[in-house]
Simulated assay, not measured.
Amino acid sequence: MKDVFTTVRERRTIRRFSAAHVEQERIVALLNEAAGLYEAEGTPHWRCLYFGTPESREELTESMTAKVTGSRLGKLLPAPMIELLKKQITGTPAHVIFIAESAGTERERDENYAAVCSIMQTFQLLGWEQGLGMLWYTDPVILSESFYKLIGWREGERFAGILEIGYFDKVPRGRKRTPPERSWTTIGEDSSQLADTTPFSAYNVLRLLNEAVWAPNDGMREPWRFIYVTGDKTEATGKQLFSEEAPSPPFLLVVAREETDPHKQNEDYAAVCSLIQNFQLLAQSEGWHIRRRIPEWSYDRKQCESFGLRPLERIVAVLEAGEPKRYSNSGFRSPAVKITIY
């Protein structure tokens, strides 16, 4: 990536695309590059489907609108409105559907979903540098039986979203983000105001988070919270509570708020994963090496509450600084992207 700081801050969601053709080869190359830039423990399993021809977009449009046209609401809607919706989908040059594959445990399912959401974010950033705009679309209104059949839905899979893709003429104005300091808690010695030269100091973590918060978030919901833990907390509670190796202090817990609506839960989890991916890309650009993982203990409510986790919150990832040889791509091997071309 050419200039991560500039790209993360300047990328925008695009809803109006030009009619210019989007090259299939470019999409595939960007997907492989995005997958290669994802670093976390575990090997995620995900797949995607590409719709880039007029014929395939027509088929996708019919499946995406089946739930509306076949419902009582669809019968009440004026025909021109439905046609406008279809025209918007068919008029978008390219669509890529992303799916997290099924897994045997909750942790593995979350690893798959976190990976595909993070790769989608990197894909958006790489595309932006080449003049491609994207819209991350997850509205449940498209999830019809017809849509599931088209994408070859398998039991246990998790729909991450559709990226609508195209070249564009106008860049929308950006909206302000809330400074991460307002969602920041320190457990142990508070050094957030000290300009420490250590890469993973509170000062430097907050500096990068101020850029990372330019992640996609629907309706400007900012569902994240940050808990920065120093050695004091680890020594006081870590050895007693952790059933596996405790994180190396200091470390950062990235927390997501959990909405009661399942669709919003997924959207918020995806937004937090995108923020984490932004943070990792920014750190890489400065020569840091970040260990990202979803530990088993993060599913133990008692252990999570010892770090001040609130009701309806969950830990999305634990981030630590690490040595390049030990942590870079630790436990992760980027498989070839599973992409189906329509």
Rank of each mutant, 00 (worst) to 15 (best):
L252T: 13
A19F: 10
E59H: 05
I165G: 07
V318P: 04
A20W: 05
Q121P: 07
T105V: 13
A246N: 07
Y327R: 14
I82W: 00
A283K: 06
T43G: 09
L241I: 13
L76M: 14
E129D: 09
L206F: 00
R301F: 08
A246G: 12
A29R: 11
I89D: 11
T7K: 04
I339C: 14
N329W: 13
I162R: 07
S334H: 06
A20Q: 15
G322Y: 11
T260A: 08
E111Q: 05
R310V: 03
G156N: 07
D300G: 06
V141S: 14
N210R: 06
L31M: 12
V229W: 03
Q193E: 15
G52S: 14
D268M: 01
Y137M: 04
S192Y: 00
I99S: 01
L30C: 08
S18W: 00
S201Q: 03
T69C: 14
G308W: 03
I14T: 00
I165T: 05
L241T: 09
T186P: 01
F251M: 03
S18R: 08
S306Q: 15
V22I: 03
P80K: 05
A202P: 01
L150D: 06
F251P: 00
L275G: 11
E33A: 09
R207C: 05
V68Y: 09
E155L: 12
R301V: 15
E222P: 07
P311N: 05
I341E: 05
R107M: 06
G42D: 11
R57W: 10
L85W: 06
F307S: 13
E55N: 05
S192E: 00
A212N: 09
S183C: 07
T186V: 15
T186Y: 01
S18C: 10
L37Y: 02
E259Y: 03
Q277T: 11
F279A: 02
L143W: 05
Y299L: 14
S330T: 13
I27F: 01
T197M: 07
G70E: 09
L252G: 04
L132F: 10
P311I: 05
A94Y: 00
F242Q: 08
V337W: 01
G36F: 08
I227E: 00
L126R: 01
W214N: 04
P216R: 01
W214T: 00
W136G: 05
E235T: 08
T234G: 08
L76G: 11
L49H: 06
D110I: 14
T178A: 07
S330G: 07
V316Y: 00
D232N: 11
I162A: 05
D190T: 01
M220K: 06
P249R: 00
Q303T: 15
L281Y: 01
R291V: 07
G42C: 11
I187S: 02
G156S: 04
M64N: 09
D261Y: 03
G127T: 07
D139A: 10
L77E: 05
D232C: 09
P179S: 02
E164W: 07
K264E: 10
G161K: 00
E59P: 01
